[in-house]
Design a protein around this nucleic acid. Structure first.
Lengths: 336, 336
DNA sequence: TGCAATCATTAAAGCGGTTTAATTAAACCG
DNA sequence: CGGTTTAATTAAACCGCTTTAATGATTGCA
């Protein structure tokens, strides 16, 4: 690759001049500009992004730390998130450095990334990395709340408790009292949050919570989310009475629907179904169309991007944003 | 941020020594190593990735050029592709620089990216960028074939013609003669390829091709892929006779299924359905489970990654890889 | 015509690392 | 013990660009 020196030499100017021709930060006379550009073209010269970054201490790149499970297909949630981040960052001229590498134990191996800021997904409890970025003065925004909470850290998150509460209240006010609750895995904070939200709704309406049959996704038992829905429905159908089922995701709901077809249960006449998240974004396309909560992962990502960009301009920026989830009533629920 | 100089000074050694402690490219005595590391820790020093990249001319980053439509949700195909690229590259210690920025008209603005190689999606006809990367000596691999074909350019691609041919042959040998073919948009090469593959199957089996009613996706007419399937099915059901429908994607098939339910058409008893691509990866989870072609976008991505990594080691590498698509027969088809 | 102001250009000093060639110190050996 | 290896360290050059301060060349104005 030709360098700026080659161009400067051949065009008979200094490299400072060539630099200015390309960066346009200083006026260069027309004849000189023309000569430089033509020489550059002839040599196939393009400014070296790395060298430039080193000099100006800016890369126009945003890092996205995204853990990826080993077996790991990226979840739909992550994808939509990513989409939001991309759109927002691209709009402001930033590119995304996807970082799904597992972290090196060896601190010696750790190097500061070629990024101007970082968005981090699903931070862990007492996440070491957060301090490290702060130490390096690299602006950071989390998607998901920091644990422990820290008012100096910017993040965006859903309010899962509120979301489950809304769903619970909706079903209760529609006359449903007993339901099957297909929550996600037992060990996740989101499950706890949802559970307490649901309890709150029952409490508020004065209905005893033992009307709710709670289940959890278990990887070993359920091969796919759909299996989880299908098997739970088949298993619980006769065992306990319920007029509604609250499902982890739309994929799980797909399994429930399959079971209802086999069982001859009509949705929504005999059974109402609500999905707590719209992963595959298929609610609109299912039969019947699925009442579900719109988690707006994309908004989450976009907002994270927005805040980060702001923070890269003004490092003192701190913003903590809870994105409201929307319950969208479609055809899979009815009031009793 | 502390620099290598700060560390060197405080530890009372030269920067070359500090460099070696971190890069481990040269043995440094234990006492010195310890001293340097402790000083580094104290100062919160981490090697600067950009400076290092400039010096060693290597970034361990792979660029992914991925056009993103303006309205644009990323398609499932792209996502699975991306997933494949990520997995393969991560495995070898590379990170991904996502580049969805529209290209600058102004060549002046174009700078060589901080990447060691590039994967490019959906290259355009006579794509300027390809030459540019070659000029810059940056290894590149395409996903999708270059147009015009060029035996010096590495790429991976599906064989859409063969794929449609297989589907056509499968249906014909199962006794289906007339079908509804919901192809993708008319102006895409993939549509042409599929059409000619399908024709070939008919020719081979000696069945006149006018038994096939071909439709195309039209953005203005069909709000969603599902609408495309639903509307086409509703419209054509009485107009022309057919015992099978070949659908663009699984989303489209979802619309077809909805229509059959409303029309009281049983799948697969009265109608067989095959999807030409498994975008939402929901074939398994639909009712009935959908017979579909597994495009293996993820494999495409992973293979592109593999070839690129190879090419970064040995720039003379050229590989052109056609990934076979698999027709997976599930429950939505039957032989007559 | 002389002096200040303006404009275009350049030389050189960074940016923060790596690496080569030279130097010093320690170890080995007959 | 002198001479040769070997190992550890360093000084300085370099990677390719930006930017500051200095230098000339022009222009404006009285």
């Amino acid at each position: 690759m030709a360098t700026i020196d080659d161009v400067a030499k051949l065009a008979g100017v200094s490299k400072g001049t060539v630099s200015s021709v390309f960066s346009k930060k200083r006026p260069i006379s027309q004849p000189v500009t023309d000569r430089v550009l033509s020489v550059a073209k002839e040599l196939g010269y393009f400014p070296n992004h790395i060298a430039r970054s080193l000099a100006i201490k800016k890369t126009m790149i945003v890092g996205l730390k995204m853990p990826i499970s080993k077996e790991g297909s990226t979840t739909q949630f992550e994808i939509q998130m990513l989409n939001g981040v991309i759109k927002e960052c691209t709009k402001h001229g930033y590119r995304i450095l996807l970082d799904t590498l597992p972290e090196h134990e060896d601190l010696t191996q750790f190097s500061s990334d070629p990024v101007d800021g970082v968005i981090m997904l699903n931070p862990r409890k007492h996440d070491q990395r957060i301090e490290r970025f702060e130490q390096m003065r690299i602006p950071i925004v989390l998607v998901g709340r920091p644990d422990p909470l820290d008012s100096s850290i910017s993040y965006v998150d859903n309010d899962n408790e509120k979301l489950a509460y809304e769903v619970g209240r909706y079903l209760l006010t529609q006359g449903h009292r007993s339901m099957l609750f297909l929550n996600s895995s037992a060990n996740m904070t989101v499950s706890d949050d949802r559970l307490s939200g649901m309890k709150k709704a029952y409490e508020e309406q004065g209905v005893p919570f033992d009307n709710v049959q709670v289940m959890n996704f278990v990887r070993k038992l359920h091969a796919t989310p759909m299996d989880y829905g299908y098997m739970s429905m088949m298993e619980m159908h006769q065992k306990v009475p319920f007029t509604a089922v609250v499902s982890d995701t739309d994929r799980v709901a797909l399994g429930i629907l399959r079971a209802t077809r086999e069982l001859g249960v009509d949705v929504p006449k005999d059974l109402s179904i609500v999905a707590l998240s719209n992963n595959v974004r298929l609610a609109e396309e299912m039969t019947p169309k699925l009442t579900s909560v719109e988690l707006s992962a994309e908004t989450l990502g976009a907002e994270a991007g927005r805040i980060l960009i702001q923070k890269m301009k003004d490092p003192s920026t701190v913003e903590q944003l809870i994105i409201d989830a929307q319950l969208i009533v479609r055809e899979s629920t009815r009031s009793l």
